[in-house]
Computed example of a mutant assay.
Amino acid sequence: MTGTATPGTPAAPTEQPPVRLVVVSAGLSEPSSTRMLADRLAEATRLALDERGLTAEVRTVELRDLAARIAHTFVTGFAAGELRDALDEVAAADGLIAVTPVFSASYSGLFKSFFDVLDKDTLVGKPVLFGATGGTPRHSLVLDHALRPLFSYLRAVTSPTAVYAATDDWAAADDGITPSLPGRIARAGGEFAGLLSPGRFSADGPEQEEVLPFEQQLAALRLPEE
């Protein structure tokens, strides 16, 4: 007997493949608050995808372990070994989560160097959720004056909410004015999951609504003749 479906029998729903997420953490210490934030953003995204009936496949790249290879690539112009694997993982991912510590009021040199050796077209149209960690809340503007311009330049689709975590944020409760860190992480993960939902984005960027020619729009406003 063949596997042909009986006429009139509805076809079984096609199972969606897992959403491939790559998490890039530029933390230098171990344990690292940068890695902690990256993991929590990934978990919030996974939970939000689960609510949409989707599963997530998460791969984490620790830039600390690739620092020497990144520097070597600047000299040789050729990425090899584990760095080549990491770059390929980013290229194949459906979405990217990237988190950096703040040094001198901006992203770290290691973080920037990784994206400097990444092919310039790798992130075109790819959803990216980014975050940063630092010792003081005064560095929170790094999200919009450094990180968002970087990923916009690389033509990525940046998630609306990015997350900055200062040292005091990890234990701070929601005061009714500023959302707590867990609340901001959950919101960011939910928005990012929306960008990762099938059909929301194409390889050429966000799907565009059909635009009617101006003449047709104008004709629709004309009063009917008596």
Rank of each mutant, 00 (worst) to 15 (best):
V19G: 04
F103G: 10
R52S: 13
S29V: 08
L110E: 05
A68T: 14
S152I: 08
L28M: 14
V163R: 09
A79K: 07
V24N: 06
A68W: 05
R59S: 11
V163W: 06
V24C: 04
T136N: 14
S159M: 11
L143F: 02
E62L: 11
H72F: 10
A105L: 14
D88G: 15
D94L: 00
S159V: 13
Y153S: 09
R64P: 08
F115D: 01
P101I: 08
T100K: 09
A98T: 08
G95V: 12
D144G: 00
V23W: 08
L54M: 08
S108N: 09
Y164M: 06
S104P: 00
A67T: 09
A105K: 00
S32K: 07
A80Y: 11
A93F: 13
R64Y: 00
E30Y: 04
L47H: 14
G81K: 03
L129M: 02
L96T: 09
E30V: 09
K126P: 04
K112G: 08
P101Y: 03
V117G: 06
V124Y: 11
A56I: 01
I70H: 01
V99E: 13
D94Q: 07
S32Y: 02
V19I: 15
E57I: 07
F78L: 15
Y107M: 06
R69M: 12
V61I: 15
T55C: 12
T161I: 14
H139S: 02
G134A: 07
A92R: 15
D121P: 01
R138A: 13
D85V: 10
D116H: 04
L54R: 12
D116I: 00
L28K: 09
K126W: 04
G77E: 02
Y153C: 10
H72Q: 15
V58S: 00
V142L: 03
L83W: 01
D85H: 10
G95I: 07
A67C: 06
E82C: 05
V19N: 10
D65P: 04
R52N: 06
I70S: 10
S159D: 12
E89M: 14
A162D: 08
L49G: 06
H145P: 03
L154C: 10
S25V: 12
V90Q: 13
L123Y: 04
D116G: 00
V99T: 10
A67D: 14
L96F: 03
R155Q: 15
P137W: 03
V23M: 13
G109K: 02
R148D: 07
A56H: 07
R52M: 10
T73D: 02
D85F: 08
A162H: 10
A98K: 05
L37V: 04
A38N: 08
D65K: 14
F151C: 02
G109S: 00
A26W: 01
V90K: 13
R148M: 07
V90M: 14
R138F: 09
E57R: 13
V99R: 09
V117A: 00
T100F: 01
D94T: 02
A42R: 05
R40Q: 14
V117Y: 05
T100L: 11
T161D: 13
E57F: 03
L54E: 05
E89S: 15
L49Y: 10
F115G: 05
P149A: 06
T136R: 14
T122L: 06
S29N: 13
L21P: 08
S113M: 03
